[in-house]
Design a binder for these strands. Structure first.
Length: 111
DNA sequence: GCAATGACTGGTA
DNA sequence: TTACCAGCCATTG
């Protein structure tokens, strides 16, 4: 039971990774694509748009921490409700602290 | 098989 | 920090 219709093998991996993101955390499309090891950030977004109806898609945002314009309202509400580290703008997520897969190369050297 | 589309990303000014 | 451009790759018609 993966998703409605027939998601491609690539989509299955994407959905699996997104579903692996714990509540209160968030990751970027690029991060998910890297976890999948195939395709790119655009494929992750396109896949979620078609099969993301069964995964916490709101935990996936752009590289700058802001969700897509068609999700900004919904995603930000879900993230704030889960206690995700939002930025001072309240319209972005602090991936630096929300990232479920901390990268030593992306860690904040000053923080 | 070809061309077009898309919930993106990184570098430069 | 904000804005513009080119690259990337799977899915769709």
């Amino acid at each position: 039971m993966i998703a409605p219709g027939l998601p491609t093998p690539f989509a299955e991996d994407v959905l699996d990774v997104v579903a692996s993101i714990p509540p209160g955390s968030a990751a970027s499309y690029g991060d998910v694509a890297r976890r999948v090891g195939r395709g790119g950030p655009r494929q992750v977004g396109t896949t979620l748009s078609r099969y993301g109806s069964g995964v916490p898609w709101w935990r996936v945002v752009r590289a700058d921490g802001s969700p897509a314009p068609v999700l900004a309202d919904e995603a930000l509400r879900r993230l704030a409700a889960e206690g995700a580290p939002l930025a001072a703008d309240g319209a972005r997520v602090d991936l630096r602290r929300a990232r479920p897969w901390p990268d030593p190369a992306l860690s904040d050297p000053g923080g």
